Simulated scan of single mutants.
Amino acid sequence: MARIPYADPDRPEHREAAAHIRASRKSIGHLHRMLLHAPPIAAGWIDMYDAVRFNSTLSGKLRELVILRIAAINGAPYEWNAHAPIGLAEGMTQAQLDAVPEWETASVFDATERAALAYADAMTRHVHVPDDVAAAVRERLSPRELVELTVTVAGYNCVSRVLEALVIRGDDPLPPG
């Protein structure tokens, strides 16, 4: 159960941000119900992650691969469960999905995927990216894609930290609203 109750989107102070979330996501799930406690953050969150997920030139497969890696490293089951089906829909194979937690020893990833996974690992585990890891990803991605990859990794580390600090779980009962 979450550390604090989920916000009621029908409360007057939450309505505008709730409408913004619904316009993007159609419904308001657990994470967004929690974020509604801080309406400006909830609305900004939607704008940021819509840009990362829907307005990026980075391939959806690569994006979801690093999101799932972050979820695996950070022990974030909500994030994993939300993004595993998206990863498959974006072109990941079941073998790749299964290999994400131990990607270093798996043979199912190409050179670009391996470079992105190493980059995600470095950013997630150590913040500072070694020069050789940065060079490997820079050789395979355009400058725009590298910025998008970097923001995706940084952003989804934020997501997993919010989820886990507030103990947000997808099977928590949500009050009406």
Rank of each mutant, 00 (worst) to 15 (best):
R22F: 06
W45G: 03
F54K: 13
I41C: 07
A51I: 07
V52W: 02
A76Y: 07
H37V: 08
L65V: 05
I46F: 06
S59G: 14
V52Q: 03
V108E: 14
A89R: 15
I67Q: 09
N55K: 15
A17C: 05
N74I: 01
T57S: 06
H20T: 08
A72K: 02
S107G: 15
Y78Q: 10
S24R: 08
P101M: 11
L35Y: 09
V108Y: 12
D110G: 11
R114S: 12
W103L: 14
N74M: 05
T112C: 13
R63Q: 07
A17Y: 01
G75L: 09
A38V: 14
M48I: 14
A118R: 15
A51L: 04
A72I: 08
S27Q: 14
P39G: 10
S107K: 13
A18L: 05
I46D: 06
D110T: 07
G29K: 11
M92S: 06
E13N: 02
A17V: 08
D47V: 03
W45H: 12
P12C: 10
R25A: 13
A89Q: 12
V100F: 15
P101H: 15
A99Q: 09
G91T: 04
A72M: 04
R114Y: 02
H83N: 01
A51S: 11
A23G: 12
A118C: 11
P77A: 01
Q96V: 05
G87Y: 01
G44N: 08
A84P: 01
S107Y: 10
Q94Y: 04
A42F: 07
W80F: 03
L58P: 00
H83D: 01
I28P: 03
H20Q: 13
P85W: 05
G29L: 13
G91A: 07
T57Q: 03
D121P: 10
L35P: 04
R11I: 04
E113N: 05
M34W: 15
H83T: 02
A76P: 05
V52P: 02
V100N: 07
A42D: 00
D47E: 04
A95R: 12
